[in-house]
Design a protein around this nucleic acid. Structure first.
Lengths: 248, 248
DNA sequence: GGTATTTTAGTTGTTTATACCATAACTATT
DNA sequence: AATAGTTATGGTATAAACAACTAAAATACC
């Protein structure tokens, strides 16, 4: 199909060829394995050309009548069965030449990727491997070269993850309903590294912010002293929404 | 043109109708009139249907071979002549039904808006009014109902502006090469309101951060005591890039 | 000269971050 | 039973930072 000459509304008399787009959604899906202290990202093997045999971020093309967010949720649901997650839009990558399916001369189609960022609970994220040639959690540091510009998208997603963890309560979307301050601290350490407060000061700050309610219950069968179990109180978080939770 | 049934790479055997997109770029262009202490946003009158006669954010459809950012710069350059500005991508609005040109039954075309956020220097922003039915700087609080979902996009842009001003040196992109601390403070007050440090503490903090270099020169012909003229030192800003400039 | 205006340079009290430590409560080992 | 190891918890001291306020300096205008 050759490109049709079309008009812009800005220059109604000069025909300017507009681009026709297919819009894709690519997800940067993170997960934290608190057992092994690893930050993981989900990648899938591409079965088809282009980039057949390469690992890539899970993605799909947007269907008729489907919103961008719906598409993001759909591709996520196709890869993993999970009921607790956080998802938001990340950035839109849309330069020409980012997809080899675009023919450089004819300009007949452009591929645009509206990337999304997701964080899922590792423990109940069950990978779905039906028909795909590969699907895997990769530790962030060991992610290989990905298809398209997906390494760039991933880097962007990781920056967003760090930033979100600093200012937003997304950690509680992937922690169990009740958790210890040790669990919470370990999650932060796994994602952010060691470059912030020690456990003692982390505790003091979080408790002072006042959105963690003590359930009264304690852990049992732990290695050391039993820890108090806390619950996240979304209402009590409101006044804290602009305060950082940790200082990187 | 009726929609063609196409295949997704995920389900190679079940034909799924993909959406065909036109991709637009809409710009939230802010400017600060420090003379009158007003935060302004640029709107243009739509000459054509849909929403003919409505004010809207300046936008355009992306052309063949043109990147999203290029399109954003192009539409900006079509509306105002300016050489100092800051521009970045904002958010992508792409739900079905956001544009009445989409026919709800045939699904033959979707309109997607990759919104961008820009801040330009008011003093040398010269509006270009050739052929358009209207173009104007509107004080943010007085912006009327806009076409499409542009009020929502504007709200998103304003949140980004506040956030950027808090953490990024975008103010220096629109201030003159040399400026006084009073100029800088007034810019912040105009955008953020009065809800942060007073002038004295603002001064102390900015100077302590160390990326403002004193030029040695002073203002003349001012009402009161001559002020020192400062210059922004981008290199010296590096270590400060995660520290807030003001506390809202 | 006096006054208004604006910039500049503080001071002080309070809060906050950071580093570090002591103890409590449990488990595992000898 | 005693001891060591582990994790949780509750501190303290110090330095830094924020907020509110005061005062002085340098100009313009009357």
């Amino acid at each position: 199909m050759s490109a049709k000459l079309q008009r812009t509304s800005d220059h109604p008399l000069s025909p300017v060829p507009l681009a026709d787009f297919k819009v894709g959604v690519d997800n940067v899906i993170f997960s934290v394995d608190t057992q092994q202290n690893r930050l993981l990202v989900l990648v899938v093997m591409r079965p088809d050309t282009p980039f057949a045999g390469y690992w890539s971020l899970p993605g799909t093309l947007v269907r008729q009548g489907e919103s961008l967010e719906d598409a993001a949720y759909r591709v996520l649901a196709e890869k993993i069965r999970v009921n607790t997650l956080y998802l938001e839009q990340l950035y839109t990558f849309g330069g020409p030449d980012r997809d080899p399916r675009e023919s450089p001369t004819a300009f007949d189609v452009r591929y645009l990727s509206v990337s999304h960022f997701a964080l899922v609970r590792f423990e109940d994220a069950e990978l779905i491997a039906d028909g795909v040639s590969g699907i895997a959690w990769y530790p962030l540091a060991q992610v290989p070269q990905l298809a398209f510009d997906h390494n760039e998208i991933l880097a962007y997603g990781y920056r967003r993850l760090r930033n979100k963890l600093e200012y937003s309560p997304i950690a509680f979307d992937v922690l169990p309903e009740v958790f210890t301050l040790g669990d919470l601290y370990q999650l932060y350490v796994t994602v952010l590294g060691e470059g912030f407060s020690d456990y003692s000061n982390f505790r003091a700050r979080l408790l002072k912010l006042g959105f963690l309610q003590d359930t009264g219950c304690k852990t049992s069968r732990g290695a050391g002293r039993p820890a108090s179990l806390y619950r996240f109180d979304a209402d009590a978080f409101e006044p804290c929404k602009d305060k950082p939770m940790v200082f990187i």
